[in-house]
Design a binder for these strands. Structure first.
Lengths: 202, 202
DNA sequence: GTCTATAGCGGGATAGAC
DNA sequence: GTCTATCCCGCTATAGAC
């Protein structure tokens, strides 16, 4: 169950499951679909996972784990500038959502399906990721870069980012990084000028 | 199917269905649950609806229809001030999400389940609602109240609002109107001062 | 308009051979 | 670790009486 004791086979299956869960949703994805996708029969699936819910748990763990890793790495590659850090977090979030890492999408959108049985380990992962966000938001607030309530700002920003899954087309003209920059630009309180540098994209 | 030819009985059932769809999700809500909730047997349900998908369609139509009505009314009660109109739209959106109108939540979160068979009428309703938003955002941009790309700003704002369904507790200290005001405050480019009036809520 | 009864299907999961 | 075969269940939807 833990990310440590995952066989290569299990990891590969988890990756494929994430893909189907995003396309069809957890409930509409059958174990037969999952099995076919990885070229085995449905019965064999239960050698790797206790039941269907455990597959979802594995995907969600993988997704949150990746998001946490990538966000930490992005922050490490950062100066201490609050704006740069905020931008880095937004970019990292969208990177995990769109750069062939369906697992994070599943973690966000199918969390409720798992909630009753959510392990402490999973909750801890998610809390760690959210803590990263709140810290970055706090710094931006303290620097006067943005304004508002720390709790609400974090949730509004994450909401705006998460909802991109519903409308963003990766094959379109904009990169995920473009989106992240536009969002940060949108909430930043410019001390002066009339906001032209970000207004002429489309 | 159209909102016009809905018997009172059917409207009542639609209301109850919306509640269950929000609680459990469409896929996990069975026709037996739906029937029990309204005090009839599952077989009787199909006298009112052709199949389960038609129930979803009715809920989504109801939800979008209501959202459109309430948003229009809110704008009508408004001065021509772009900030007031933006605030009114945000408030109206959250009002339809949280003030015992589960149908709008279903419309937003279960849209994909219906998408393959979405009627022209339904798409038209949704487009009309989105057009309302884009118009208000356009005015706010033109007035220099906010900044960014019209397309992206609308989607970010709607994303932030829609995602509140996942975390907002109506029994908590904040009203939906508080949330709306905070969001508008967050994206507004203050020409001067250091953003204190909105920062001391929590 | 609601009931009972049930058809018909597809789902998750198991057992035991290989 | 994968297969075949299958159990058992609950789901949507239908048929016909009342």
């Amino acid at each position: 169950m833990n990310v440590m004791n995952a066989s290569p086979r299990r990891k590969e299956l988890t990756r494929l499951a994430a893909q189907l869960f995003v396309q069809e949703g957890f409930d509409r994805t059958t174990v037969r679909m999952l099995a076919q996708e990885m070229g085995i029969k449905s019965g064999s699936l239960f050698h790797h996972f206790k039941d269907k819910k455990e597959i979802l748990a594995a995907v969600i763990e993988e997704g949150t784990h990746n998001a946490l890793l990538i966000a930490r790495r992005a922050l490490d590659d950062c100066e201490d500038d609050p704006e740069a850090r905020l931008r880095a977090m937004a970019r990292a979030h969208l990177e995990t959502l769109f750069t062939d890492r369906n697992a994070h999408v599943v973690a966000l959108f199918e969390w409720r399906r798992l909630a009753p049985a959510a392990s402490a380990h999973l909750s801890h992962l998610r809390d760690a990721y959210e803590a990263l966000w709140v810290a970055v938001i706090d710094d931006a607030l303290a620097a006067g870069l943005i304004h508002g309530d720390r709790f609400l700002v974090s949730r509004f920003v994450l909401g705006a980012l998460n909802w991109t899954v519903r409308w963003y087309d990766p094959d379109g003209p904009r990169t995920p990084d473009d989106l992240a920059d536009e969002l940060v630009g949108m909430i930043m309180a410019r001390q002066s000028e009339q906001g032209d540098s970000l207004a002429a994209h489309d």
